[in-house]
């Protein structure tokens, strides 16, 4: 009896969380005459394929829209922002965890708090700044601004990660005659690799998801990223191509979902700070 309640509750949560994705899936592969039947027609069940599935919407998305271009733009921004974030946040996290002594924690928290300042508060001054730098409507604007969101969180992540790595290995290297700098350059990188991986994944997901700055800075369709182009520019005239729209949403969600599943626990450690021990 208790098991039944448990499964029922789990199923309920799965339906609530998952049904928009099921709806994306169904919409992606449905023929138009099966898709566009008004919801007031109770005899036509929209949850299932009443006609055989089709690849037309997928073909349209990849062949006749700017979607492939947006994928490329997104990847360019991802790579650039990952490079900047790793180069800036990883040394900072190491510094706070190993070199800063007592004020490391406070400083780290100060940097982390800037993560709470949202894009929607900063987009007004940034629109001015980006115009001044001549970066309006260019991917360069996104590459410059996105690290403001990744660096604070990733500095904090790396600091927290290093806390859990025993100090003995680095200490032994110093006893063996390495200078402090040599330890940082030759010994520490190997120890931080899992931390760096988390930073890369966090940055990847954040760039894939960001919408506000992209909407503010990018105006021409061929410069857009996936998260901006799909909801804003995948509309022809006034007509929404729901099949292709849902295909784009579906194909973008799948890699992100897989990555999230693998790294969720590491992200959560960053968010819960000291509130969860153990």
């Amino acid at each position: 009896m208790k098991r039944v309640a448990l499964y029922a509750a789990a199923l309920g949560f799965m339906v609530f969380a998952g049904f928009p994705f099921y709806w994306m899936l169904v919409t992606t592969f449905k023929q138009n005459r099966d898709l566009y039947v008004g919801a007031s027609d109770v005899s036509h069940i929209p949850w299932i394929f009443n006609d055989p599935p089709t690849l037309d919407h997928v073909r349209l998305l990849f062949g006749e829209t700017e979607f492939p271009r947006w994928v490329l733009n997104t990847l360019i921004v991802v790579v650039a922002v990952v490079v900047i974030t790793v180069a800036v946040a990883v040394p900072a996290g190491y510094s706070l965890a190993r070199l800063a002594g007592r004020w490391g924690e406070r400083m780290g928290m100060g940097i982390f708090f800037t993560y709470l300042i949202p894009p929607t508060l900063l987009f007004v001054p940034f629109s001015r700044l980006v115009a001044l730098l001549g970066l309006h409507n260019s991917l360069g604007a996104l590459i410059l601004i996105y690290p403001t969101m990744t660096i604070p969180f990733c500095t904090w992540l790396v600091m927290g990660f290093l806390r859990s790595v025993p100090w003995e290995i680095e200490e032994q290297a110093m006893i063996d005659g390495y200078s402090r700098l040599a330890v940082i350059l030759r010994v520490a990188p190997r120890l931080i690799v899992p931390g760096i991986l988390t930073v890369v994944v966090f940055t990847f997901t954040l760039v894939m998801q960001e919408f506000v700055y992209a909407l503010t800075f990018i105006s021409s369709v061929e410069k857009m990223t996936i998260s901006l182009g799909v909801p804003i520019a995948l509309v022809r005239g006034d007509v929404y191509h729901w099949g292709s729209l849902m295909a784009a949403a579906l194909f973008t969600s799948i890699p992100l979902a897989i990555v999230y599943n693998l790294f969720i626990d590491r992200f959560i450690q960053g968010f819960t700070m000291g509130a969860v021990k153990g």
């Binding site: 969380a17 998260s227 799909v230 909801p231 784009a248 969600s253 992100l256 979902a257 999230y260």
Partner: peptide
């Protein structure tokens, strides 16, 4: 259960 968090807000 985790899907809604992974998908970009705009999508």
């Amino acid at each position: 259960l985790l899907l809604p968090w992974a998908v970009p807000v705009s999508l």
